[in-house]
């Protein structure tokens, strides 16, 4: 019985995280920290370990974290119920928004709003691309040590990034999955990262 209650609590707590964290997977972090403090299920060191694992595995980070916490707390049933709790609020909200959008699809004001909003959406994605690039291509520690901006760039990463970019721009049929698999192999061969 207490195990059933534990599963229910797990589901409920991740449901709340899903309901209140807006944005990407990292937005769930502050909620996880307070969840750990309230329940004692995991501590700050566990969280940094979870983030490292979530970042080293495929899939949305929020889902990875919910699965890991769920498994740690309640085994396999927990690793299923944690992520389901996390995604349940979004599913409901997005389905409601989809219905509303379909109703107002013909409205010219909705289309006017999307005209401005799409440019902003791509602007946000460009900003996110910049922050990903900073982490992947630039080594802040080397820069801080040497003070030389150009030495801060990780040469292997910059070259691989440039090659992949030219390849996807030239060969429209090239699948992103093929690029990722190839890059993982190249990373291992040249001991990158």
């Amino acid at each position: 019985m207490s195990y059933a209650l534990l599963l229910l609590e797990l589901f409920g707590r991740f449901f709340l995280v899903g309901l209140f964290s807006i944005g990407g997977g990292l937005a769930t972090l502050p909620f996880l920290t307070s969840m750990g403090e309230t329940t004692g299920w995991f501590n700050a060191a566990d969280i940094s370990n979870m983030v490292a694992i979530s970042e080293s595995t495929p899939g949305p980070m929020g889902i990875n974290m919910a699965t890991y916490v769920g498994y740690t707390v309640a085994g396999v049933p927990g690793s299923i119920l944690g992520p389901i709790g996390l995604i349940a609020p979004s599913i409901v909200i997005i389905i409601i928004i989809s219905r509303v959008l379909m109703k107002f699809r013909e409205s010219k004001y909705v289309n006017y709003a999307f005209y401005g909003l799409r440019a902003a959406s791509v602007g946000l994605i460009a900003a996110a691309c910049y922050s990903v690039a900073k982490i992947a291509l630039f080594n802040g520690e080397v820069f801080a040590e040497t003070g030389n901006f150009f030495l801060g760039f990780d040469l292997k990463s910059v070259i691989l990034c440039a090659i992949v970019f030219v390849a996807v721009m030239c060969f429209k049929k090239l699948h992103p999955i093929a690029c990722i698999v190839a890059a993982a192999v190249v990373g291992i061969i040249f001991q990158m990262g």
Binding site: A136, L137, V164, F165, G187, G193
Partner: peptide, 22 residues
């Protein structure tokens, strides 16, 4: 860690190409 070093670099290029398309 090495595989992810490679993947991270490729992901930057892939996102950049997506931004251009959009």
């Amino acid at each position: 860690q090495w595989a992810f070093g490679g993947i991270r670099a490729a992901v930057v290029a892939l996102i950049l190409s997506s931004v251009i398309k959009l």
